[in-house]
Amino acid sequence: MSNAMSERAEHASRRPLWPWQVLLLVGLFLFWHVLTRSEVLPPFFFGEPLQVLGRIWDWFASGRIFPHLGVTLLETLLAFVLGTVLGLACGLWLGLSPRAARLLDPYITAFNSMPRVILAPIFAVWFGLGIWSKVLLGVTLVFFIVFFSVYHGVREVSPVLLNNARMLGATRTQLLRHVYLPSATGWVFASLHASVGMAFVGAVVGEYLGSARGVGYLILQAEGVFDVNTVFAGVIVLTLAALGLDRLVTLVERRMMNWRPKVQEHDLHG
């Protein structure tokens, strides 16, 4: 009986869902189109989907968007990588030395609960209007997500695994490399999806507050002249880019975490 049930479940999960997802999106745009065309919603404030799509088409056809999108993506990627590496390093360090953790605990809590977006103007003053002020803002956002998941993860490394590695002759550095780091990749990946979004927030908010390039800058410009359609176009382009990055993380995750049981398989056979 369980066999038949699992087969049915497998069958249901294999049926492709994407046509429905596309349909949902089309429906949403249609809804938006009808509401603004009939002026139930004023197009001046809510934009018009056809013009928004036209603007996006225009950007990509003329290539005008690429330098801006490139800068935003570069900022995001740098913030993402630097924040992740720093968060991983600090998470491992504090997770492994409880004394340092106790010493720094109040500062970490304070820094984490602080609304860090407010640092953007300070970073702009310190690092100018180039990409680094945005990267740093993104780093402060990404850092804590990765840091906390690694910091808590270190304490949950199986003591049996640690003892086994020690009995097999692992030194302290080897424990780090062969037990803590591989365990940490699991926790890091769990946090990376949230981190990608945060890196984007850092980049765009940074641009929004002062820059000469980037998608955030385009949005700011459009807002200045009440061009809602361009604002929406920018938002959509950013969303698509974020989706792309998230997908990339998923791909890397699948490659690196192939030792982990697949959730579905686990449910069916476990």
């Binding site: 049996v160 695994l161 086994n164 591989p182 030792w259 982990r260």
Partner: peptide, 9 residues
């Protein structure tokens, strides 16, 4: 060990 101590990765 009594528990599983293989490295899962």
């Amino acid at each position: 060990f009594q528990a599983d101590a293989l490295f899962p990765w």
